[in-house]
């Protein structure tokens, strides 16, 4: 079971070991948790289909959907979906996305970040702004993008619509000074996928195990450890909006890098 390196490897191991153990116990076979040092090595492992079960972001899934098929998605903050959005400071005078022309926009993550980059770029494109019409900056995480916006290091920030509700953001900056400028349609959260070559029966057993985790305290502990409020059933067509946006931003079959 491979987990994308959103966190440090040690932290990832701590977070997902209970789930791996749970799967091992329920499947009756050993589930080995695999972590990656960075996104490059993780992407290579995905390309090489070294993981049977994989948890990654929406962009990664779209990229690897020929080899992997989604079986479930994460539910975060009690929500299954979240829209991508652009944020500005209230005192900036910016009320339209088109006003971001020539401005600096900071994105919380890399170019493969679905909510923090691809979705905001999609919004900009809808407003008629190409990549050369604004200056792009990249923060390590979406909360850092919000902080940078607050510190006036950028004129707008890209992130999920829940960005300003995140505790770490609320604790760090005065979110009242910011407001959401525009948002995309709702997008399903991060996907859990399995190799398409995996027997269907096993795929289903795995799906059953992980989507039924909310029935007991032990399961709640597993979910809490993985910092999610639940895992819900999902299928490939649920990620079609993501696919459309990615194709719009990068072109079909074009890698962001």
């Amino acid at each position: 079971m491979g987990i994308f390196p959103r966190n440090k490897p040690g932290e990832t191991t701590t977070m997902y070991t209970p789930l791996a153990n749970h799967l091992s116990a329920r499947l009756g076979r050993k589930v080995v948790l695999a972590t990656a040092r960075d996104f490059d090595s993780f992407s290579r492992a995905v390309e090489e289909r070294r993981y049977d079960i994989v948890f990654y972001n929406q962009f990664h899934y779209i990229q690897s959907s020929k080899s992997y098929t989604v079986i479930a998605h994460n539910e975060e903050f009690g929500r299954s979906v979240v829209a991508g959005a652009l944020f500005v400071r209230k005192d900036s005078g910016i009320t339209e996305v088109s006003q971001l022309r020539g401005r600096t926009i900071i994105f919380g993550g890399g170019r493969d970040a679905m909510l923090a980059y691809i979705a905001p770029i999609f919004l900009l494109m809808q407003a008629g702004l190409g990549e050369k019409d604004f200056k792009s900056e990249f923060a390590v995480t979406p909360p850092n993008a919000a902080v940078a916006l607050s510190l006036k290091l950028a004129d707008a920030a890209g992130g999920g619509e829940i960005l300003l509700s995140l505790p770490v953001v609320k604790k760090t900056i005065n979110t009242d000074e910011l407001r959401m400028l525009a948002s995309t349609e709702p997008l399903l959260f991060l996907p859990w996928a399995v190799k398409r070559s995996m027997p269907a029966k096993l795929q289903e057993r795995i799906r059953t195990v992980i989507v039924n985790l909310d029935s007991s305290d032990a399961d709640q502990a597993i979910l809490a450890s993985a910092r999610t409020t639940g895992i819900r059933k999902a299928q490939d067509k649920d990620y079609e909006p993501h696919r459309r946006m990615i194709n719009a931003v990068f072109g079909k079959g074009v890698s962001p890098k």
């Binding site: 900071i106 900056e137 990249f138 923060a139 390590v140 995480t141 909360p143 850092n144 993008a145 902080v147 940078a148 510190l151 290091l153 770490v168 760090t172």
Partner: peptide, 12 residues
């Protein structure tokens, strides 16, 4: 590194 990466949480 944190400044360059806009990692304000790390700076914090």
């Amino acid at each position: 590194e944190a400044i360059l990466g806009f990692d304000f949480l790390l700076l914090n």
